[in-house]
Design a protein around this nucleic acid. Structure first.
Length: 387
RNA sequence: UCCGGCGUGGCGCAGCGGUAGCGCAGCGGACUGUUAAUCCGUUGGUCGUAGGUUCGAAUCCUACCGCCGGAG
C-alpha cells in the first residue's frame, strides 16, 4: 500500500493539485491519461504523445492478453519497452469488458469466462489472473478486477454487483505483488445509489489500496447524475490517495469532476473522436467533415499551439477527411490529445494559484459558446439575380 | 454504311406492363475504464427525345439523337 507515493500539493475548494510518484516517473494531477488500448495510442507516435504533455498512458489487460499475450509482452521487455513509452502506465483490469462484451461472456462468483473477439477462442479472467497479467505487463498502476455495473440497475442489482466487485477487490489485493513505484487501485461501484457508494468506499478502505477509482459512471446516467454521485462519493475518500474517474470524459465532464475532487481521468473521446472527424476546441466541438470548413484558412483552435494548429488549416484537414487520407485522423487525434492536456495543465495551475473556480468557469463558458463561423467562401459563385 | 448492345438522381447500377430502388458521392448526426480510421440518418430522378399500343409504360412498338463494340 505504500508502493505508490501521492503528494497532495494544494487544494482549492474540493479541487486538488497533486503529484504521483511511480517507478517510471512523476504524474502531475489532475491528469488525463490518453488511451493506448493495444499498446499504442491510435494514430500517434509515443514521442508525439509525450509532446502533448501527457505523463501517463492507459493500457488494456483484455486486449493485450488476447494479442499478443501478457507473456509475450513480458518476454519483449514489458509494456513500456514494448511500445516505447518509458513513462508511467496504468492498465485497466479487463473488468469493463465484462460489461461491454455482453453475449460473449459468462460471469460466476470466481471470475469471467469469455470468447475472444479476435478468433472466438475461450478465455478466463479472474481477479488473480488479472493481477498476474498486469504484473507481466509491468503496469505502474494496476486496476482491481471488477464488474462495471450497467445502467440502469435497480438498487438490488447494483448492490449485488458492487459486493461481487468488493469480494474480487479483496482477492486482487491478496494476489497483487507489491513493489516500490507500483500500485494497486480499488474501484468504487454502487451505481447511482449513495448508500452503496458509501458501502463500497468503506469496503475498499478496509482492504487498503494505493488509490481509488470510481467506476460505473458515464454509462448513460447523464452528466448531472454523474456529478451527483461524485458529490456524495469523493468526500468519503481518504484525502491522501489519488482518485481516478474511469472512462471520463468530455471536457465539461472533466472540469466538473476536478471541481468535485477527482485527480485522474482516461477516455477514448479525444482519440476516437479525432479519428472520426470530431475536434475539441475552446469553443466546443467541431466536425471537420462539415462543408463549412472546406475554405476555412483558420486552424482548428486559434489559441492552440499544437503542431496541427500551428501548421494546418481547417480547409486542409477537411480535405484530408473527405479524401479518406490517414493523415486526417492522425492530425485531429494529435490536436485533441494536446487540447485535453492543455485543459489539464490549465486546471492544475489554476488550483496552484487558488483561482480554480474562475478558470473552470471560463473554460465552461467557452465550451458552451460554440464555434465561430468562417467568413464567406471567396470561390463561391454569386447566383444570377435575374431570371 | 450495316449489325448488335446500351442510354434510369453527380457517378456506377437494379427494376423490364401497374405511376422508381440500391451502392458510392453529397449533406448531417453519434461516439465517455476502445471488439470501432466506426456506426447511424438523410437531400437529389419521373427513367435520352418524340410519337404509338394499353385501363395503365422506365418496362412493348416506331422514329430520331447519343455512346460503345463488331463488320465493311
Amino acid at each position: 500500500m505504500t508502493g505508490l507515493a501521492f503528494e497532495l500539493l494544494k487544494t482549492d475548494g474540493a479541487a486538488r493539485r497533486g503529484c504521483l510518484h511511480t517507478a517510471h516517473g512523476l504524474v502531475n494531477t489532475p491528469a488525463f491519461m490518453p488511451v493506448g488500448t493495444a499498446g499504442t495510442v491510435k494514430g500517434m507516435l509515443p514521442e508525439q504523445v509525450k509532446a502533448t504533455g501527457a505523463e501517463i498512458l492507459l493500457g488494456n489487460t483484455y486486449h493485450l492478453m488476447l494479442r499478443p499475450s501478457a507473456e509475450r509482452v513480458a518476454q519483449l521487455g514489458g509494456l513500456h519497452k514494448f511500445m516505447n513509452w518509458p513513462g508511467p502506465i496504468l492498465t485497466d483490469s479487463g473488468g469493463f469488458q465484462v460489461m461491454s462484451l455482453t453475449g460473449l461472456r459468462t460471469l460466476d462468483a470466481d471470475g469471467v469466462t469469455f470468447r475472444s473477439h479476435v478468433d472466438g477462442s475461450k478465455h478466463r479472467l479472474t481477479p488473480e489472473r488479472s493481477m498476474q497479467i498486469q504484473h507481466l505487463l509491468d503496469s505502474n498502476i494496476t486496476m482491481a478486477f471488477d464488474e462495471c455495473t450497467p445502467f440502469p440497475a435497480t438498487h438490488e442489482q447494483a448492490a449485488s454487483s458492487m459486493r461481487l466487485s468488493m469480494r474480487w477487490a479483496e482477492r486482487c489485493k491478496a494476489a497483487f505483488t507489491e513493489r516500490s513505484g507500483y500500485g494497486l487501485f480499488g474501484i468504487v461501484q454502487g451505481g447511482v445509489y449513495e448508500d452503496l457508494r458509501a458501502e463500497s468506499v468503506e469496503a475498499l478502505n478496509g482492504i487498503g489500496f494505493d488509490g481509488y477509482a470510481v467506476g460505473g459512471l458515464a454509462v448513460g446516467e447523464g452528466q448531472e447524475e454523474m456529478f451527483r454521485v461524485l458529490d456524495v462519493t469523493t468526500p468519503l475518500m481518504l484525502k491522501d490517495r489519488p482518485r481516478y474517474l474511469m472512462g471520463v470524459g468530455r471536457p465539461s465532464d472533466i472540469i466538473g469532476s476536478v471541481r468535485r475532487g477527482v485527480d485522474m481521468f482516461d477516455c477514448v473521446m479525444p482519440t476516437r473522436s479525432g479519428r472520426t472527424g470530431q475536434a475539441f476546441v475552446r469553443r466546443g466541438q467541431i466536425n471537420i467533415r462539415n462543408a463549412r470548413h472546406a475554405h476555412d484558412e483558420r486552424p482548428l483552435d486559434q489559441e492552440c499551439h499544437c503542431p496541427t494548429c500551428t501548421h494546418y488549416s481547417r480547409g486542409y484537414l477537411h480535405h484530408l477527411f473527405k479524401a479518406g487520407e490517414m493523415l486526417g485522423p492522425m492530425l485531429l487525434t494529435g490536436h485533441n490529445v494536446w487540447f485535453y492536456q492543455d485543459l489539464m495543465a490549465s486546471l492544475r495551475s489554476a488550483i496552484e494559484e487558488g483561482r480554480f473556480e474562475d478558470v473552470a468557469t471560463a473554460w465552461e463558458a467557452g465550451l458552451a459558446q460554440g464555434d465561430i463561423p468562417a467568413t464567406d467562401d471567396p470561390l463561391k459563385t454569386t447566383a444570377p439575380v435575374e431570371v
